[in-house]
């Protein structure tokens, strides 16, 4: 009797969270998977089963491949750069330097700002001729560049903004982890004759392992999820040069109202992300030292 009551109580307490999870995560995922096998409903023709039609469309769609390639480049650039930068910034603001508080604030500020606002600031930086970047480059005699308007440079610009935004956020995790490393360990390593580089490689980095794993998983997810600044900066252009999967899903689903195809794209993105996240944990979990 007692145990049945406590089970009921436990369920009752978990219920609010479960309702939210089911309503906004589990159900939409299942509905999306189902939708991806259905045609897009039209006023005169309700949706019907079309098998793998949506997926076949995807394989034949050059814009899908362009978006996927862009996304992979975007991920390959933003993940390592933002994580490495985060670690470097955390190491700097964790050391005993003057103005440490100010520096910490400066590094973290991009995280506090809304991405849309950030993108608008950068929009000014990238403006040809009058923008901050061209102003600076003109000092060394470089000509004006249409940074966001050229297929050559647009993706790079989007990547830079993402790194600038993300690194400060990841820095906080590294900083917190660095402060839990006992100073004795670093001192012992110094006594043993290790130089700064050896201490970083042999003591600090291994002890930051769990943080790196956590940050890396988040960085991967963000690389496929964060598209706010693309709306403001380029709208996916020019000529799909900055179109990434998430942005393409938005265009297909809410621009062209092609529900079935958008669902199929979403399923591919979800499956890819799930695979990468699981892979990261399986691959690195054994090599990470948890204290």
């Amino acid at each position: 009797m007692q145990s049945r009551q406590s089970t009921f109580l436990a369920l009752a307490m978990a219920l609010p969270a479960m309702i939210l999870l089911v309503a906004f995560t589990h159900f939409p995922i299942i509905a999306t998977v189902v939708d991806s096998f259905l045609s897009t409903p039209k006023p005169r023709r309700p949706s019907h089963y079309v098998g793998l039609d949506n997926y076949n469309t995807m394989i034949a769609d050059p814009i899908f491949w362009k978006a996927l390639t862009n996304n992979l480049i975007y991920a390959a650039a933003t993940i390592p750069v933002s994580v490495a930068l985060a670690l470097a910034m955390a190491l700097v603001v964790n050391s005993k330097i003057k103005g440490r508080g100010l520096l910490r604030m400066a590094f973290f500020t991009p995280t506090v700002l809304p991405m849309i606002a950030v993108a608008n600031i950068w929009l000014f930086f990238f403006t040809p001729t009058y923008g901050a970047i061209d102003q600076i480059l003109s000092i060394v005699g470089m000509h004006a560049t249409n940074w966001l308007g050229s297929t050559q440079t647009a993706l790079l610009c989007v990547i830079i903004v993402a790194v600038w935004k993300e690194a400060g956020f990841f820095m906080i995790f590294y900083l917190a982890a660095l402060q839990t490393i006992p100073p004795d360990l670093i001192e012992a390593a110094r006594i043993e004759g290790a130089d700064r580089w050896q201490i970083l490689r042999r003591v600090t980095l291994p002890l930051l392992g769990p943080t790196t794993l956590f940050v890396a998983v988040n960085a991967v997810i963000n690389a496929f999820r964060t598209v706010d600044h693309i709306f403001v900066l380029t709208g996916g252009g020019p000529d799909n040069a900055t179109n990434v999967l998430m942005y393409e899903i938005y265009l297909v689903g809410f621009g062209f109202f092609d529900q079935g195809y958008a669902a199929a794209l979403t399923v591919v993105l979800l499956a890819g992300l799930a695979l990468v996240a699981v892979g990261q944990f399986v691959l690195f979990d054994k090599r990470v030292h948890y204290r």
Partner: peptide
């Protein structure tokens, strides 16, 4: 690191990993 001594700490300061 340049003093060429050894030291035992109160906390032992062993590397946990």
């Amino acid at each position: 690191s340049g003093r060429e001594i050894s030291m035992v700490f109160q906390s032992y300061a062993l590397f946990p990993h």
